[in-house]
Write a protein that binds this DNA or RNA. Structure first.
Lengths: 220, 220
DNA sequence: GCCGCGACTTGACAGCGTTAGGTTAACGTT
DNA sequence: AACGTTAACCTAACGCTGTCAAGTCGCGGC
């Protein structure tokens, strides 16, 4: 009777919704912890449920299946990556922007190995299936689109060698140069077969190599 | 009675061994086909066995477990890759050799997507655990070691910019530049989120970029 | 002619992701 | 205040997986 007015009492449906959102959040947190600790494949629904004292089936009231759970975490990380990159967008020089984006991208990968893995290293797309969720080319949400835009700007300013005309091709070249380092390091860091050098130093070198290899010679 | 001599009759133990090797081979063939068609994860021991009209458990008489089966296929492919690269070893100029090795490596990846995937894109090392099987730095067996040797030769000849001193670091940089393209394409080729350009063309561009970015300027 | 060995099968185990159906507590309505 | 509805959660189970202990059976060697 305190202040129900004509709408629902504040402590009813709204509170219930908040409760639901809370357990949903707890599931996501537990899943993330276990995914990071033991890998996605090795983490079972039962283990996630046990960690928050629920029955496995309870998870299915909040997520369609395990894939949807992964997808949700992916979505969050994807926005986090885009947010980390967007700050760099203010840098005027496209080449310097690319350099800084590359470093930020690599930092994200090395700091979030597990997420990086199921974002970019698995065959099934863990990108949100709903096209309305992540808007292509909106730099706030689509880091790849942001890179393409930056490359496009560089192309327009004539910063690149003449054989580079296609912004997608050049963006894919730059991106995959870093992705190779990050993903190989994530997958094979413990493999004694390769003598690894400090990956962040190699990333810095790789970015320089790629910029030197793509920019127009006369304005080096 | 034809020609048993003092050793065992030829149609006995030897034949039996050949028989065993034959079914072992059939298992490997079936596994490879299914792995390529449906992916490693989606391929079950039961499916492999059914394809050659055996019971699942029969496989375990020839391979310790599924992992060992994968590992064996990996080992074969690994030698195939090294063999494909070794022919290029005759090219005198290290830089040109690197270029050709890169193309051959990319061809291998695009032509053997499934194998490439579980050789280089999975966390658990599918490299043969037995260190005696693949000899490190023997170019006939270790493609990475072969690349390192080539890079080392280029370093000794002073072909690279002065900031590159470490043959491992430079080899990892070159390798991962291509690995990024190949692995991203394998994992995300069907992802509508990225507008893919022809990967082989991009590979050629990437190799040029990396060589141009690492070689000494004055002998361009 | 018997023995042993080894390739192969039978039948089962524990664990996985997932689901149909039941329980229970809180809600809006009367 | 008692009702029926809703939805969060649980119980029990399904079909599937990789794997194994124990059995079958036929061939080679003594």
């Amino acid at each position: 009777m305190s202040a129900p007015s004509h709408t629902q009492p504040p402590g009813s449906a709204a509170r219930r919704e908040r409760q639901k959102e809370a357990t949903r959040s707890r599931i996501l947190d537990a899943a993330r912890e276990l995914f990071v600790a033991n890998g996605v494949e090795a983490t079972t629904m039962r283990a996630i449920a046990a960690r928050i004292d629920y029955t496995p089936t309870a998870i299915y009231h909040h997520f369609r299946d395990k894939e949807a759970l992964i997808e949700e975490l992916c979505y969050v990380d994807f926005r986090a990556l885009a947010t980390a990159l967007i700050r760099i967008g203010e840098i005027a020089d496209p080449l310097e922007r690319i350099r800084r984006m590359g470093m930020a991208y690599a930092d994200f990968g090395f700091d979030n190995k597990s997420q990086y893995q199921f974002m970019f290293m698995t065959q099934t797309s863990h990108m949100p299936k709903d096209p309305a969720r992540v808007e292509k080319n909106n730099p706030e949400q689509d880091a790849y689109g942001f890179l393409v835009l930056t490359v496009e700007e560089g192309l327009k300013k004539g910063l690149f060698r003449p054989e580079f005309q296609d912004e997608h091709q050049l963006a894919q070249l730059l991106w995959s140069g870093l992705h190779g380092l990050i993903s190989l390091y994530i997958a094979k860091a413990d493999d004694p077969w390769i003598t690894w050098r400090d990956p962040r130093t190699t990333v810095r070198l790789a970015i320089d190599v790629m910029i030197r290899g793509t920019r127009r010679q006369d304005l080096a």
